[in-house]
Design a protein around this nucleic acid. Structure first.
Lengths: 367, 367
DNA sequence: ACCAGGTGCTAATGGGTATTAGCATTTCCG
DNA sequence: CGGAAATGCTAATACCCATTAGCACCTGGT
């Protein structure tokens, strides 16, 4: 007890002391309902020795032999802990930890080999140590995901991901629905000219989902509510131009994909004497978690990260049971809406109103 | 590629294709300088097959054979993720993750079985899954730590911990030194009557360390600088009383153990027309990380949590090497000081001054 | 011709667990 | 009392890799 590295006791050790075979010890440990039976007396004896010795199964041996470890791996495609991403990742982790604790699993954080995060990499499919894994990341390596899927390793992606070939299991926030509801709300309070704006191309799945929700909210055949176009900016610098367009087109409400875009819009608008939501209503589709120094009570949505973490964990554990291997593999989590205070009825009932022309700066400002 | 669980190729598979023995494959992979030699030609042949097959070593088998897992466990005595503790724990985790990644280790977060965090629990010392563990927590179970120490399991406590019997390895912030320097600074700018105040008993080790540092800063024999007493409050409610005492005794500077205490002191003092640092200097020994809505530029210290996490990880990995098992086991990390703006020379050179009684705001705003 | 020493590889083993076929014993039932 | 069925366990094997002893062959020296 007190000295040396003291090799950990094995099932063989337990077996010897309990006067049974190693197989019996294993059987006692993994209470299988199948086939083999162990008498209560023997079981007790074995368990008692196990307690006495402080025996703990060797994780490697167990997983080598095809057993389960009660370990859930967590793999992120970007390092979790670069301080910039902390606010993004942590709530997920939080949910995972809670759920894992409740289900009796531990969490194995794959740090990735130094220099280059890759799942498959000479010698390190470390993932195999865990029974299954939760995958995270805004910019995953699609090929690796496919490879993983084809390998039969159980995993769940946290976030909506579509890859070519067979579908992969994921748990995603229902951006489409939340966006739809937010947009509908705009129409409900009287807006008629509504645009969707984003920075960067809308390639990422979450981006596409939001746009889909927006389009759904705009009744195609309703002439009084013409389909709002989707405007894509390359960088926040172009917000001034966007604002000019907004005025010219008589747009009274903007659905902004990113928080930063909304901020820029607000700042830029205010410099031009435009009030939000008086002159322009803004809805934000990115959540403002971690945004420092922004007290604006945005109307928008909350990404239920913690909830997503929990649910992904639950789904994964379900997938781990061989029986339900073919259960539903994709789930979505409702995004709560935030009422906020950046949405109001449009300025003048039905007619467009000229922008104010008071002495002011010109619209072009670069932060 | 596309179908079935498709068993991953093993060394045996490689060996067959390369027309060598499995051992040779292993030898090529772990380029040992010891004993056995492989001709460049054979090596190339093997490597080529490895590439072709996309062979990846099985982590479990490897660690089973070699003994180590390259996994570091992280165990906390309080659940990490109750949202209240998030700000406390996360920086530690951050440091650990970074260092672990650099050293090529993964992190195993022990979630603890739902209900009751105990390391030793019905024989399942899950800890053993990892090669070693980092222990965290403000209120650890001392007996368990001792038991763990006696078991020979390698671990490092993050934070200063002393338990009875043999010492345990830890990495701690040097509160004593930081406190000493802060206190000395008070004396240096002219304060003569300085008190140390805390909320709650000072049983915890970090508390004791700070007090020690304080006492060290106060020259025992120097009459002009009488030993400041240590005042212990039961709750923040008693701050008003403390303040009265401060005035009565002509105290011009307070070393506040907790951030909340300093806040209370400031708020309470201001209500009475006292200015900080004009009338009273305050030094804070708890860091204000995560304190919402406190813009006060406190003079105090930073708990270098991230650094501690890193260093603890390094120390643990060092302990894992059998050779250096007996290396230095305790390390301390310097606490950076924060200049802040709540320290100034005492109000009137040597004489006590009556507190001002004008109805007004003071210099420091409390948001 | 013989041996010493070097070279390049293999056979064998161990590491801890899960699983399955199967054996020995007991109980049940007619 | 004989056979069937149930009970309770074990032996054997697979899982995949690292390590080591040692074999077969070759070279160079005497």
């Amino acid at each position: 007890m007190t000295r040396g590295p003291a090799r950990r006791p094995t099932q063989a050790d337990v077996a010897r002391l309990a006067d049974v075979s190693q197989a019996t010890v294993s059987l006692v440990l993994n209470e299988r309902d199948a086939g083999v039976r162990i008498s209560p007396a023997t079981r007790e004896r074995v368990l008692s020795v196990i307690r006495e010795l402080g025996y703990v199964a060797n994780a490697s041996a167990r997983s080598l032999a095809g057993g389960r470890n009660r370990i859930i791996g967590v793999y992120t495609f970007e390092p979790v802990f670069p301080t910039t991403s902390v606010d993004f990742y942590f709530p997920f982790l939080l949910g995972m930890e809670q759920e894992a604790a409740e289900l009796g699993y531990d969490l194995l954080l794959f740090t990735g080999v130094a220099g280059g995060r890759q799942i498959f990499r000479d010698g390190s499919t470390r993932l195999a140590l865990a029974d299954g894994a939760l995958l995270l990341g805004r910019y995953p390596n699609v090929e690796e995901i496919e490879q993983l899927r084809d390998s039969g390793y159980p995993f769940v992606y946290v976030g909506h991901r579509e890859v070519s070939g067979a579908p992969i299991p994921y748990v995603a926030a229902d951006y489409a629905r939340a966006t739809q509801r937010l947009t509908e709300r705009l129409f409900a309070v009287g807006h008629e000219r509504v645009v969707y704006a984003r920075i960067g191309n809308g390639d990422a799945q979450p981006s596409r989902d939001r746009e889909k929700g927006f389009r759904r909210a705009v009744p195609a055949g309703d002439l009084r509510r013409p389909v709002g176009p989707v405007w894509t900016l390359e960088s926040p610098d172009e917000v001034a131009g966007l604002l000019a367009e907004i005025r010219r087109a008589g747009v009274t409400a903007v659905v902004a994909e990113q928080h930063v875009l909304a901020q820029e819009l607000l700042a830029c608008g205010e410099r031009q004497g435009m009030s939000v939501p008086g002159d322009l209503s803004i809805v934000v589709l990115g959540d403002s978690t971690g945004a420092r120094g922004d007290d604006t009570p945005w109307t928008g949505l909350v990404v239920p990260r913690e909830q997503m973490g929990r649910q992904a964990t639950r789904l994964l554990v379900r997938l781990l049971k061989p029986a339900e291997e073919e259960a539903a593999r994709c789930e979505s989590v409702e995004c709560p809406l935030v009422p906020g205070a950046t949405v109001a009825p449009p300025p003048v009932p039905s007619r467009q109103r000229r922008p104010r022309r008071q002495p002011r700066q010109t619209g072009v400002s670069t932060t």
